[in-house]
Each structure stands twice: as C-alpha cells, then as structure tokens.
Amino acid sequence: MEASTIMPDEKADCLRRGRRDDSALARPEVLAGARAVLPIAVAATAFGVSYGILAREAGMGVVAPIVMSFTTFAGSAQFASASVLEQGGALAAAVLAAVLLNLRYLAIGISVAPSLRGPLVRRLAEAQLAVDESWAIGQENGRVMRGRVVGAGLMLMVGWCGGTVVGVIGGGALGDPSAYGLDAMFPALFLALLVGLVKDARAKRAALTGALIAIALLPVAPPGVPVIAAVAGALIAARSRS
C-alpha cells in the first residue's frame, strides 16, 4: 500500500502538482475549476439555447443537435455549421467552416497533453473537455492544471448541452443572449487569464505577436484562421532571446 507510506497532505500535494503517475484527479482542484467557470457556464447555457433554436430552424431535427453538443462540444463551429445549413448552403461548406474554426484545438490539445495522466483512453477523454474556456481557466504559471480543466469542462458541458436541449425542445423565452452582453464575457475571460500569464518578456511578446497576427488576418482570412495563426506568436517568441 503505497498510499500508507506517505502523509495524506503530502499525497494531496503530489496529486495537485500532477507529478505522480496517478490518474486520480484531485477533487479540490476539479471543484475549483467548476466554480471558476460558473459565470461563463451560465453564458454558455444561454448560447446553448440559441444554438438549439438555430439548429432546429436549420432543419437538423431534435436529436442531432443534442448529440453534436456532446460530441463536437464547440460553440463557434456548431453555430457556423448550423448557419450554413440554415441558409441552404452545401454540406461540404458547413463541414469546412466547422473544421477551420476548430483547428485551434490542435494547439489547445498540444498545450494540455503534457498535463494529462493515466491510460490513453482516459487522457483522450479528458482532452475532449479542454475547450477554450476550461483550458484557459486551467492555466497556472505556464502550465495546465488538469483537474481544473476537467472540472470546468464538465461544468461547461452540462450548461452547453442542457441549453441545447432547451433550445431544440422549444425554448425561446430568453431571447438573444447578446442583448444581455453575454457575448462580451468570453473575450473578457480570456483577457483576464491572459493578464495572469504574461509575466515575462517572452510571454508578452507571444501575446502581442499573436494579437497582431489575429487583427491583421481578421479582415481577409476565413473564420477560424486568425485564431490558429495567432499561435505563430508562440513560435516567434520562442526563437527570440530572453
């Protein structure tokens, strides 16, 4: 019994750091992630409702949008594909729009991978929970806190999928979430977490370069491309001295 050979608080500390080859999640960390993301999960729920309504209008039926919210679990891509279908666009165009928007998950997946623990299936399952907001909330001193990503990701999934169910079943009472300014909460969250991350010159350079690339590409590149291109900021900053 290895557990009996170390003090309980020592074990908790190891789990928190994720250093041990242990796939068990530290409960306080999971709860901290869920709590931190709560206001954003409320906004995600409201957007889940409007996604459900749009998907229904796009002729996607009731079950398909709900399945999509669980499996794709990415708001912008789901909105984009439903909009294309709703406007009578081609299926290929809907798929292309969604895949371009989700290219950033390649970078998020790479960022979160070193923090994941346990067998491959488990790590893959946890990687699915690393969406923009949960991944952002998991940031701490240049590394990703796995428990926080999982807690925040599960909370967001409950909100987004629950909202989708309400939307497809016929909820429309809430109206447009943007009228309540809920759309401004997402960039505000990313900004708040970014401020906590840019402590040294390299991180500042990475952020500034990423922001400039995104602004430059916004007017010319298709949706999704400016965000993934911002990652070049990391490559450029990593090459710079200090």
Binding site: I108, Q139, L194, P226
Partner: peptide
C-alpha cells in the same frame, strides 16, 4: 508560449 499567443488571438 502557446497559451499567451492563443489567448491573445
């Protein structure tokens, strides 16, 4: 550095 660049984006 992925986190600051992607968050900024």
């Amino acid at each position: 550095l992925l986190a600051p660049s992607l968050l900024a984006g």
